[in-house]
Design a protein around this nucleic acid. Structure first.
Lengths: 223, 223
DNA sequence: TAGGATCCACTGGTGGATCCGT
DNA sequence: ACGGATCCACCAGTGGATCCTA
């Protein structure tokens, strides 16, 4: 049996490992991996996600591509309530604001990331201690053609506005399933140029997020 | 009297402060600024330079522009022997390998940095303890037209080779006063494209350095 | 002796996300 | 309820240069 922090060799192996986590607490998994989890959820926002990456053998910290490059699968932990409904939106990736006019959906990092996503729910009741949270059943998401059409439309709407220099009109209200929100507290403004006059504006970093309404659908429907 | 770590308000004030350091040991200056200097010179290569920046009120750590942005002056500490001759070459800046075909001398960061340089010699005998090293008399270097012609030719020769994809032919032997050498131990290779075919090669980071023969001339001739 | 190799501190950006006031 | 604001760890890159061997 391979050590659990080696990369899984196949999608089947990945899914088996993920199913083996179902019902376990983050605390137990962390103990097994000798990884510390902070008690304070405010100061450890990303820790459950990193723990589950390690537990499944994701390529840690690398900027490679996907979490499982050989499988082209992205791992997303997702906090849920007791009924399995997501408590938060799901971060997808940063937006390349400078390249908004040239990156088509087909070539976008956004599409690649969303092509195959392993969602791993983490049951996160109000005020729950991080160590007590329980991992739910994994769901491997592959967009249907219809789903991809909606995601693509959201992407193109957002990138179109950005390419026109109207990035400030882009609020989190835009988009059916994919929304645009600020990313990175400490981020610094980038200069964008647009239009025939090459006008220049400053913009803070933003990212794409999946709305909870969409991930709820994903987690609910068995695939 | 302003605190010595405020930026100097004028070139005159900067030069006065620099002259006030002449004859002092790095240890005494460090003590006054409550800054620790390591004993081992191997593991504290950049420390004297940083100490003198702070002592003169340079804009610390900022990626702004010059060390004294308002004065457009760059500060360089330079290790010398007992006679005032430089012991080392002087690092100028990184080379933007990717932009070699588009950045003219007039617009180059290299030219801007070399337009006004405050050299602060640090007498550094063999095996000298860092704390005992003594600051020499400052020299404000502004290139004469003739000097700038030579620097410009060195710059253009180097950038021309890089733009042709011949970066590996560029050794530290090239250049009269400005030479090209590796920079950054941990640097990772960048992809350069060149030529009508957009051929691609990998290249490690490199920087421009002033040869000791040139800085010797600068330090020797009173200006 | 000087060309190629190396050393440290700091920080901005990224990837991991959730917090929390309106 | 959700949109804007925020939190941490890690690491590559940069700026400060000098080391050291052939």
């Amino acid at each position: 049996m391979p050590r659990s922090n080696d990369p899984p060799a196949s999608e089947e192996e990945l899914m088996e490992r993920a199913r083996a986590l179902t019902g376990r607490t983050l605390g137990a998994i962390a103990h097994e991996l000798r990884m510390a989890l902070p008690d304070d959820p405010v100061h450890g926002k990303g820790k459950p996600g990193e723990l589950l990456e390690r537990a499944l053998g994701a390529t840690g910290g690398s900027r490679a591509e996907h979490d499982f490059p050989d499988l082209a699968i992205e791992l997303k932990s997702i906090p849920t309530d007791g009924k399995g409904a997501p408590r938060e939106s799901t971060y997808v990736c940063k937006i390349q604001l400078e390249d908004a006019d040239s990156v088509e959906w087909e070539d976008s990092w956004t599409r690649k990331k969303l092509s195959r996503v392993l969602f791993l729910p983490v049951v996160t009741p109000d005020d729950s201690a991080m160590l007590e949270r329980i991992v739910g059943a994994p769901v491997l998401f592959v967009p249907t053609p219809e789903e991809e059409r909606v995601l693509r439309a959201d992407y193109e709407d957002a990138m179109g506005l950005i390419a026109m220099g109207r990035v400030e009109e882009l609020t989190a209200h835009t988009g059916t399933w994919l929304q645009v929100r600020p990313k990175a507290r400490d981020g610094s403004a980038r200069t964008l140029t647009f239009g025939p006059e090459r006008e220049a504006i400053q913009a803070m970093p933003r990212g794409f997020y999946l709305r909870p309404s969409f991930t709820a659908k994903i987690l609910k429907e068995p695939r």
